[in-house]
Computed example of a mutant assay.
Amino acid sequence: MSALDVARKDFLDARRSKIVWLAIAIYVGFIGLFMVIQRDQLRFHDTAHEGVVSVLVGVVTAGSVLIPVVALVAAYLAIAGERETGSIAFLLGLPNTRRDVVVGKFVSRSAVIVLGVVCASLVMAVSLLALYPVFPVRTYLVAMGLMALYAVIYVAIAIGISASVASKARAAAVGFGVYVALNVFTLFAPIGSHVRTLHTEVLGFAEAPTLYRFVSQLVPSEALSQVMRTIDVDIAGGSLPPADAPFYVQPEFAPVVLCAWIVAPLAVGYTRFKSADVS
């Protein structure tokens, strides 16, 4: 077998999981409800196009909170669950390399979650056609692509966690901690503001706004917001850095951050799984 064979088998297993499809159904239902409720907000915008774009930006913002939960639920047991039950020994004896297992699990769980995002996007499209006066195709496609990319990021994080630990309980605990750190903790203030407090008030250094902006952009949800600001800064909120600011704080650098969140967790997870005793 190969990574593709592992992915095919795991996809069949994952699609039978009721809790995975329940999480996806809740997400799709929320998006549909959000599109219906937000229709009333169009009157607060100067043009219909601006209002619809604002609604789609809101969908992406809401997705940045919900998608991590769905992805973590779908993937946190992908490897840790098999290690705890002992079935991982059978999977590695087919033969498959441990890299095949990590890559295959990532591909299969990503396919499941992206399928859920596609379902939500279809609900968005139907809502736009039925309830809204315009259909901004470009913004819709960007929103759909960003949600899919964001979902894949958290699948990679979940697979990295699952490959790094040996039990379901540890995978759940670490996954919960990562979600709180990256999504709940940053709801109150950007991570850059906490770094600013430490940098200036605790350590006594001078202000470094570029450093704070860069650190904030390292969080996946903020990187996603930076990408949205390239669509329309007035609607997405926030402000763009000066044109002469370093490239690593420009919104164009945000996709690099998002892609790094895919590669790094998988690399860490594979490194730990490669040397783990699974007997």
Score class of each variant (00 low, 15 high):
L258S: 14
P209E: 05
E252C: 11
V180T: 13
V202E: 09
I26T: 02
F135I: 15
A148F: 00
L266Q: 09
M228E: 02
D40E: 13
S17H: 07
V202S: 09
A158I: 03
L129R: 06
P209Y: 07
I153C: 01
L203E: 14
A25E: 11
S164W: 10
L258Q: 07
S193H: 15
G58V: 08
G116C: 13
I231Q: 08
A267T: 00
S239P: 13
D10L: 05
K18P: 05
M124H: 00
C259R: 03
V52Q: 12
T139V: 15
K274G: 10
A75F: 13
A3Y: 06
V137T: 07
L149D: 05
A151F: 00
I24F: 01
P136N: 13
V101M: 08
V256I: 12
H199T: 06
L131T: 00
V233I: 04
A223F: 04
L149Q: 12
V215S: 00
A75K: 01
Y132I: 13
W261G: 09
T47I: 08
G160N: 04
L42R: 12
S275G: 13
P241Y: 04
A143Y: 00
S108N: 10
T47N: 03
Y179W: 11
A208R: 06
A172R: 08
A163N: 05
R229M: 15
G238K: 10
L91A: 10
I19N: 11
R272I: 02
V123F: 06
Q38C: 15
V28K: 02
A151W: 00
G177L: 14
F106L: 10
Y270D: 09
L182Y: 10
G63F: 03
T197E: 07
A111Y: 03
G32I: 00
F176C: 12
Q226C: 13
A148M: 01
V142D: 11
I161T: 14
V155P: 01
A80Y: 07
A125T: 11
P251K: 06
S108V: 07
T85L: 14
V174L: 13
I153D: 00
R170F: 14
D232H: 12
V107H: 05
P242N: 11
D234K: 12
A48P: 02
V70Q: 04
F44K: 01
R8H: 08
Q226N: 13
Y140S: 15
I26K: 02
A89N: 08
I153G: 01
L12I: 14
G269Q: 04
A120V: 00
L77C: 01
A208N: 12
V142N: 08
G175W: 09
T197Y: 11
F176S: 13
A14N: 08
I235M: 15
V249T: 08
V73R: 11
A172N: 02
V137G: 09
Y248F: 09
A89F: 07
V180I: 15
A181W: 14
V107K: 09
R16M: 14
Y132F: 14
P95I: 12
Y140M: 03
V103M: 07
A120P: 01
C119H: 03
V184E: 15
V60H: 01
V195F: 05
L129Q: 02
A236Y: 13
P251V: 04
L42W: 04
F44S: 07
S108F: 09
L128F: 08
I88Y: 05
S164C: 10
W261N: 12
F214S: 01
F90V: 07
A120K: 00
H49L: 15
P209K: 05
V215G: 03
